[in-house]
Amino acid sequence: MGKIEDLQVINGEGYQLGRLEKVVAAARANSVWPLPFATSCCGIEYMATMGSNYDLARFGMERMSFSPRQADLLIVAGTISKKLGPILKQVYEQMAEPKWVLSVGACASSGGIFDTYSVLQGIDRVIPVDVYVPGCPPRPEQIIDGIMKIHDMVRNEPLRRRYSDEYKSLLNKYEIEGNEE
């Protein structure tokens, strides 16, 4: 298990005390199940990241979750065209809370070099994004760095964040229904 930051653990005979929030966050951060939404070139670099040289499994991400229902992290790697935008949004909506989004590569982040009639100019036009990884395509080290940033966010997220008005208004902006309390 990875390092649990800021977690004051009080050990005693037969018990251990810590803040529930931190314990849950640590558990989440060390077993993120990614859903690779790999469309193009960045997908190949993502495959290299999964491969034995870079080995994503080191970060508790051994299991690729190809079903959105059982995924925590949506990794969007590659160009998203306007034709694909609604599908991406549907995949995002199908994921259960809490969920995070990593946008890998220039195309997913901003359209990249493809400022053309058919390409969606950044996936943040259809779904909220947590971390952007620049590069065309990013090197595996960069993708891993992005994933580490996601881990940091997961570790430091308050338990109640997903129920906050702020979060709901974020989702409303994208016309996505949030979860009910």
């Binding site: 193009s40 065209s81 694909l84 070099i113 493809f114 390409v119």
Partner: peptide, 30 residues
């Protein structure tokens, strides 16, 4: 098909010759 249509051919009509090389990169990226 067409979910990753990126309009290479239209893009190429706007770019100088040596700037088209990066577009060809992204055809068969393997």
């Amino acid at each position: 098909v067409g979910y990753i249509h990126r309009a290479f051919e239209k893009l190429a009509e706007r770019r100088p010759y040596n700037q088209i090389t990066p577009i060809t990169d992204r055809l068969n990226y393997c």
